[in-house]
């Protein structure tokens, strides 16, 4: 365990709110990462899709993922 990690662990033990805040950031980052991956996947699907109806559905999904990501990034900034 590095000194930094050890200090963080000790700090967390005595100050639960700090730990909670760090965990919140960590999990939000995880969600953002998953959304990014999902967005890329759906964009690839959209590029290869010819059917109009399916393309519309995929576009809708991408728009939602983008909006969710934007919202998440905004929240992450506020946490700093």
């Amino acid at each position: 365990m590095t000194t930094n990690k050890l200090l963080n662990a000790i700090g967390d033990f005595f100050d639960e709110s700090k730990k909670k805040q760090r965990n919140k950031r960590k999990y939000l980052k995880e969600v953002l990462h998953k959304l990014k991956t999902k967005c890329k996947k759906q964009r690839n699907k959209l590029d290869n899709e010819k059917d109009k109806g399916k393309r519309d559905n995929l576009q809708k999904e991408i728009d939602i993922i983008c909006a969710q990501r934007k919202k998440g990034l905004r929240k992450l900034k506020q946490m700093k």
Binding site: K24, L28, V31, L35, D63, I64, A67, Q68, K71
Partner: peptide, 23 residues
């Protein structure tokens, strides 16, 4: 904590309406 992070990025009614309008 993971569930809370997930829920925090879900869109509310207004945000969902915005997307509908744009589309």
């Amino acid at each position: 904590e993971q569930q809370a992070a997930e829920r925090s990025v879900l869109l509310d009614e207004e945000e969902a309406n915005e997307i509908t309008q744009i589309q």
